[in-house]
Design a protein around this nucleic acid. Structure first.
Length: 239
DNA sequence: GCGACAG
DNA sequence: ATCTTGTCGC
């Protein structure tokens, strides 16, 4: 594919999001059982155009690491709230293409439907790959909501400012910590995306797939891992 | 005009 | 996103 948005202006990017939005699908006949879930992450030095990207694949619902894809990619499109996809998706598409066994669902670091134009990075990536995706963001970008109870697994709906449309959830993934923001990116419903993410919660605020992606891409940037696609050896059964 | 603003 | 010391709470 070799995607590159470096020459786009924000005005053009916005028009593209409005066009993409019309092509989104959320209720794809979804009787398929989920056996694997992936998470993506990007790492880089603020003063460099080199992006380090990863997509890690875990078994579901056991959440054991099965494989990971590591790539490096040059990007000049700047970060701007509302346009994250244009900066990070090209790197992720490159990581996606070298995966030999595609996962059933992909969790992106950022928003999905919970976006001013319903086109967060999870929707952007999901549309281009025709993959089921979920947006899981560490902070809020858009919408209003009431704070969920401080107890782990509690959640509340996030709504569109003017229409009151339900567009995502604030989910408490750990007692007494800030919630994360969940919304479908592509191919899944709001309810289904929340249900899946609840099952990805471990003992930290950041859900397990995303935590692993962050750890692995950091090792990659530090030179501890090499670019490419690698399937991890299954843990031997002892008896 | 003012404040907010994923990573 | 990344850097980075100390501090607070479980």
């Amino acid at each position: 594919m070799d995607l590159n948005y470096d020459e786009l202006t924000f005005v053009e990017a916005k028009l593209m999001q409005e066009e993409f939005r019309k092509q989104l699908k959320f209720d794809i006949p979804n009787s398929k059982v989920i056996n694997s879930i992936a998470a993506t992450d990007i790492s880089y030095n603020p003063n460099s155009t080199t992006m380090y990207g990863t997509i890690v694949i875990l078994s579901y619902p056991e959440l054991r690491l099965k494989a990971y894809s590591l790539v490096t990619c040059e990007t000049n499109f700047p970060y701007k709230a509302g346009y994250l996809g244009f900066r990070e998706v090209p790197t992720l598409i490159k990581a996606w293409e070298q995966i030999e066994n595609k996962p059933d669902v992909v969790v992106l670091d950022g928003q999905g439907y919970l976006h001013p134009r319903r086109m967060g990075i999870a929707s952007h990536f999901g549309l281009l790959t025709a993959q089921a995706t979920i947006g899981c963001a560490k902070s809020s970008l858009y919408g209003f909501y009431e704070e969920p109870s401080i107890i782990k697994y509690s959640f509340s709906k996030v709504f569109e400012h003017h229409t009151n449309e339900h567009i995502g959830y604030a989910l408490r993934t750990k007692n007494k910590t800030k919630p994360v923001y969940i919304s479908p990116g592509y191919g899944l419903s709001l309810v289904k995306s929340l249900e899946i993410m609840k099952k990805c919660i471990g003992n930290h605020r950041i859900p397990e797939p995303t935590r692993l992606a962050h750890e692995i891409v950091n090792d990659f940037r530090m030179g501890k891992l090499q670019a490419g696609y690698k399937e991890v050896n299954p843990t031997p059964v002892l008896f």
